[in-house]
Every structure is written in C-alpha cells, then in structure tokens.
C-alpha cells in the first residue's frame, strides 16, 4: 500500500531543479500522476518526496520556432489535442494521444510523463520519433538535449538521472507534401494499452515515386523502433498495392525475426502486417489518388 511521503510543489523550473539537486535520489516526480500514482499504490515506488511539477509555467507552453515546435513537457494530452498548432502540424501524434486511456486520463496525463515512463507501448513515442523528437533535459546549472531514440534505452528505462527534469520536446513541423498516419491495436478501444502500434510518415515526389518513408513500430520490442530496412526498400518505388503489401509483410517479418517466434506469433505476424498496411495505405495510396 501507499507509503508515506512529503509533497513539494515548486513554482518555477529553477526552484524545481534546486529541489531535485538536493533530494533527487529520494524523489519521484509527479506530472499527471497516471503512472506514478499506480506505482505508489502498488509499492513499486517508495519515494520520500513527491515533487509535483504540473504547475511549472515554463513547461506549459507550445512555442513554434522556425521549422520546429517546442512543446512543454507538462501539457496534458487534452490540452495538446485542443491546441491549433499541434492539431495542424502533428496529425499522427494527435491520433496517438487520442488513443491514450480515457478522457479522464488524457485530462491529466502528459507527454513528458509518457516519455519518462518509457513504456514499450507508449502511444506518443512512435509518432514523435518520426519528427526527429529531441528532448530538452535540465538539471541545476546545466541542460542537455537528447534525441528521443537515444533517451530511451529499453523497456521502462532511459538515460534520465534522478536530478534531471524534462522541460520540453522539440518536434519538426510537417513538411510540404508529407502525410502521416498512426494506428494501434488494443484489446478494446479505450482503456487498453496498445498491443501493437505504428506511425508512418512519407512523401511522394512529383512523379509519384516514394521519396521519403519513415516507420516506427511500438509494443513489440523493448522500445519503439525505426524500421530502416523497410524504409530504404520503399524509397524510389511507386506506391502500388503490391509494393505496399510487400512492405507490410516485411515489417511483420522483421519484427518476428527480432523478438523470436513465440506462442503469439501466429496472431501477431498477420496483425502487425495488417496494421502496417493500414498506415501505409493512409500515407501513400490515398495521396496518389489526389
């Protein structure tokens, strides 16, 4: 059951970093609390201090900057989904955020929390990976920026130190002619963690040939992963149904090769292929019609 702890709520990032510097090792950061409150209840986490970062003004803004947008780490899914810039620039991320839990969970859960929790099934991570996501991490006296792929090193594991705070996420805006899609399979539509999830981003050139394709698949390996072989296979080809089908089977095969054949393979292999096909169709087939 829930142990006893102190509750601290800093008013600004500087104060927060001071507190982390002093008490980081015995502290659990709480943003929306949708992961932390469960760990406190089960006793998986027994911090001496809970540091509530949900009201830090510096982490609650969306700031477009040239080709990129800097997204504050403690904005909730609901706030982001309702934000005009986020809606316009990040359709796949919006679709992914719309899949998280329930409205009650989206009303408090944050993007920073999803990243720091580093679940293999995190909905927001695959679409952010495709937008060159860079994570802004601060500690007392210094800050660093790390690519999302590098930050997450395994299931529920990342490079964050106990005295570090994610303050924001830098995402690249959607470029002209690009389309993207996010799909997931869960046991039911809401309140279920993704069994498989995928984001695909791509662009056709003027002659209808695939010029760029980026694929990120979650839930199947310890952390969401880019499918670079399939990406290069697609580039330079026309998005005919045959090619798309082939690519979706390649994605499934590559994942099965990686995780090994298990009792679930018979279900997972066609499910992954089907999911990938849906994404690839969204991105490449619809656009070739236009």
């Amino acid at each position: 059951m829930r142990g006893h702890f102190n509750y601290l709520r800093p008013d600004c990032v500087t104060e927060c970093l001071d507190m982390l510097d002093q008490y980081g090792n015995e502290t659990a950061i709480l943003a929306g609390g949708t992961d932390v409150m469960i760990s406190l209840r089960t006793g998986v986490k027994k911090p001496r201090i809970i540091l509530d970062i949900s009201r830090l003004p510096e982490t609650r803004q969306v700031e477009p900057y040239g080709e990129t947008v800097r997204v504050g780490s403690t904005l909730t899914y609901s706030e982001l989904i309702d934000h005009p810039v986020i809606r316009q620039e990040f359709p796949a991320l919006c679709a992914a955020m719309g899949c998280v839990g329930s409205l009650q969970i989206r009303n408090v859960g944050t993007l920073g929390g999803n990243i720091a929790n580093s679940s293999p099934a995190a909905d927001s991570i695959p679409p952010m990976m495709l937008r060159d996501a860079e994570i802004i991490i601060q500690k007392k006296g210094s800050s660093r920026i790390q690519k999302l792929e590098k930050l997450i090193v395994g299931a529920y594991s990342n490079t964050l130190e106990p005295n570090e705070l994610i303050t924001g996420i830098i995402l690249t805006k959607i470029k002209k002619g690009y389309r993207e899609s996010y799909q997931r399979i869960g046991r039911r539509k809401s309140l279920s963690i993704a069994r498989i999830n995928a984001a695909i981003l791509g662009r056709l050139n003027d002659s209808g040939v695939i010029e760029d394709a980026r694929i990120s698949v979650g839930s199947v390996a310890p952390s969401p992963m880019r499918m670079t072989n399939v990406e290069s296979h697609l580039k330079g080809r026309k998005p005919e149904l045959k090619t798309i089908l082939e690519a979706s089977r390649m994605i499934a095969q590559e994942i099965i090769d990686l995780v090994g054949v298990r009792h679930s393979t018979e279900y997972k292999q066609p499910a992954i292929a089907g999911l990938a096909l849906k994404c690839l169709e969204d991105v490449f087939l619809d656009s070739s019609v236009n």
């Binding site: 609390g33 949708t34 469960i38 809970i50 509530d52 949900s54 009303n107």
Partner: peptide, 28 residues
C-alpha cells in the same frame, strides 16, 4: 483505484478526472 473504471470521477477546473489518481494536495 487505478484509473480504469471512472467511478471516482470528479471535475477539476472544468475537466473530468479520476480522483483515485490525484493527490489531495493537488486540489489546492
């Protein structure tokens, strides 16, 4: 008690949230 059933739903600043996942201190 773990955010899955909604029986504990309350409204905070106009938004429906699960009160089982919120610390009382956060109501301040």
């Amino acid at each position: 008690g773990i955010g899955e059933c909604g029986a504990c739903t309350i409204i905070i600043d106009g938004k429906a949230v699960n009160s089982c996942l919120i610390l009382a201190a956060q109501l301040d």
